[in-house]
């Protein structure tokens, strides 16, 4: 008696199914996998999956693959943590902004032959969900006007970065930045021009900072930079580079043009710090820079 041909389901499924033997050699590769990977079943079957995709050979993959084989568990590769298991290009029509298809993957045990155990992998394309999730997150953590991070995100991130610096015994510095005489710029050129001045400052910061540095709009015309793994001397050098860059930059918009300067307060974390004490010191530094004539950086160690 013939039962249903389950293979038809696998062939027609809107997600990827691969079956790997105990050495991670491909035994089965469904049509969805052919389409997403560009590798036909004939080109995949018989080859170790890490040979097809060297980048998937991570400690986490090894750990989970072995656990599936040895303990018969299923393992889950969430998009949140892993982004993707297979480095596929996004399918045509996917939202912009992703180099790779975003995936949720599951690995589980499946028996084949005489008492042998293999591993099946399912691949679900969640690029669209990830796109909306990313968009929502961006909306809640960015300042709309300047696209710098917002205050809420900054407060949370500062505590995290302080904790991380402590854990790994790394240095961490903070710089508070404020545009000098911002009110005068607004009064003279109008608020839309003032907005452009804020954007120009953010562009100067972005051109000066590393990708690991965190820039946030602290309030009004005041910005704050978190510099992970950065000691006092480097932070002071950074502050001076930024000060000079802003002083040289011409702000032009609506047919008007001006230059501006900034004052900066610099501080680094100390072993005896309580909470975000470094923030208060950087703020004191900023206050001192303003009080002593502006267009300068003052460090409060």
């Amino acid at each position: 008696m013939n039962g249903p041909d389950f293979r038809q389901i696998l062939d027609g499924l809107g997600q990827g199914i691969a079956i790997l033997d105990e050495k991670a050699v491909v035994l089965y590769w469904n049509p969805w996998m052919e389409r997403a990977s560009g590798i036909p079943e004939s080109g995949a079957v018989g080859r170790p999956v890490v040979e097809l995709f060297p980048s998937i050979d991570t400690p986490s993959l090894k750990r989970n693959f072995k656990s599936v084989l040895s303990f018969g568990i299923s393992a889950y590769f969430s998009n949140r943590l892993h982004k993707h298991l297979f480095p596929f290009k996004p399918l045509p029509g996917s939202p912009e902004g992703f180099d790779r298809m975003q995936q949720n993957c599951v690995m589980g045990p499946i028996s084949y032959g005489e008492g042998k155990r293999a591993v099946y992998v399912t691949v679900e394309d969640v690029t669209e969900t990830a796109f909306y999730q990313r968009k929502l997150v961006e909306l809640t953590i960015r300042d709309v006007l300047t696209t710098a991070y917002n205050r809420r995100y900054f407060d949370q991130r500062l505590l995290e970065e302080i904790e991380r610096a402590r854990r790994y015994a790394h240095e961490l510095s903070l710089i508070m930045v404020d545009i000098d005489h911002f009110k005068a710029i607004n009064d003279r050129f109008g608020h839309p021009f003032g907005d452009e001045a804020l954007r120009a400052l953010v562009r100067s910061c972005e051109a000066t900072m590393r990708t690991t540095d965190i820039l946030a709009r602290y309030g009004g015309e005041e910005f704050c930079l978190i510099l992970p793994e950065t000691g006092r001397a480097e932070a002071e050098a950074f502050a001076e580079r930024l000060r000079a860059a802003v002083e040289e930059r011409r702000v032009s918009a609506y047919g008007k043009e001006t230059t501006m300067t900034i004052s900066l307060g610099v501080s680094s974390i100390r072993d005896d710090d309580d909470g975000p004490a470094v923030l208060h010191r950087a703020d004191e530094g900023l206050y001192a820079a303003k009080a002593s004539g502006r267009n300068r950086a003052v460090t409060v160690p």
């Binding site: 040895s70 568990i73 299923s74």
Partner: peptide, 17 residues
Amino acid sequence: EVVVEIGNIVIGACVGK
């Protein structure tokens, strides 16, 4: 996410054995 991953493996090993 890490605790869930490790938990999944530890539970699987203990219950499986």
